[in-house]
C-alpha cells in the first residue's frame, strides 16, 4: 500500500508515494538516486548508511522512509556548500582518512554529529564515537586524524 511522504533532503523537498516497508536508505538510493549513502550490513552495525535526520546522525537502514515524513534529511551529498568542501571532507582529504571510500560518507556524517556536541574531542572520544562505523581499509588511524583536523578547522 502506498504511503505519501514529503521529505526535505539536502534542502530540497521531495514528495512521493512509497511502500511502508521501504527503508530510508533504500528510498534515498533508489527513489532519489542519492547513492552516496551506502549499505554495508543487515544488522544496523556498520554505519555506512549514516545520515542526519533532523540534524542528528542516524542509521538510515534502520528507519522506515515513512517515518521520515515531514523531516529534514542531510546526506553526504549535502555536506559541501556551493562546491566548497565541508571541513570534515577537507579533513578526510588532507589526512588521507579514506581509501576505498565506501565507509567514508557514514564516517563523516557521524563525525559531524560528534563535533556538534563535542567540538574539541580527545583521540579516545573520537574513537569511542566511531563505535557504530566500520572501516576495513584505514585501521581508523587517519580517520581519527581527519576528525581532529576538522575540529581544529571548525574551532
Amino acid at each position: 500500500m502506498a504511503n505519501k511522504i514529503s521529505i526535505n533532503v539536502n534542502g530540497k523537498m521531495h514528495t512521493g508515494a512509497i511502500e511502508a516497508r521501504k527503508l530510508l536508505s533504500d528510498y534515498l538510493r533508489e527513489d532519489l538516486s542519492l547513492t552516496g549513502t551506502h549499505i554495508g550490513c543487515d544488522t544496523s552495525s556498520c554505519g555506512a548508511c549514516t545520515i542526519h535526520l533532523d540534524g542528528k546522525a542516524v542509521k538510515s537502514c534502520t528507519i522506515l522512509a515513512v517515518q521520515a515524513d515531514g523531516c529534514s534529511v542531510t546526506t553526504v551529498e549535502g555536506l559541501a556548500t556551493n562546491g566548497e568542501l565541508h571541513p570534515i571532507q577537507e579533513g578526510f582529504k588532507e589526512e588521507h582518512g579514506l581509501q576505498c571510500g565506501f565507509c567514508t560518507p557514514g564516517m563523516m556524517m557521524t563525525a559531524t554529529d560528534l563535533l556538534k556536541s563535542n567540538p574539541n574531542p580527545s583521540e579516545q572520544e573520537i574513537r569511542d564515537a566511531l563505535e557504530g562505523n566500520f572501516c576495513r581499509c584505514t585501521g581508523y588511524h587517519n580517520i581519527v586524524k581527519s576528525i581532529q583536523y576538522a575540529a581544529k578547522k571548525m574551532a
Binding site: 546522525a57 542509521k59 554529529d113 557504530g132
Partner: peptide, 9 residues
C-alpha cells in the same frame, strides 16, 4: 548503549 546513531533513535 549501541553507538551515537543508535542512541539518537
Amino acid at each position: 548503549i549501541g553507538d551515537i546513531q543508535v542512541r539518537n533513535v
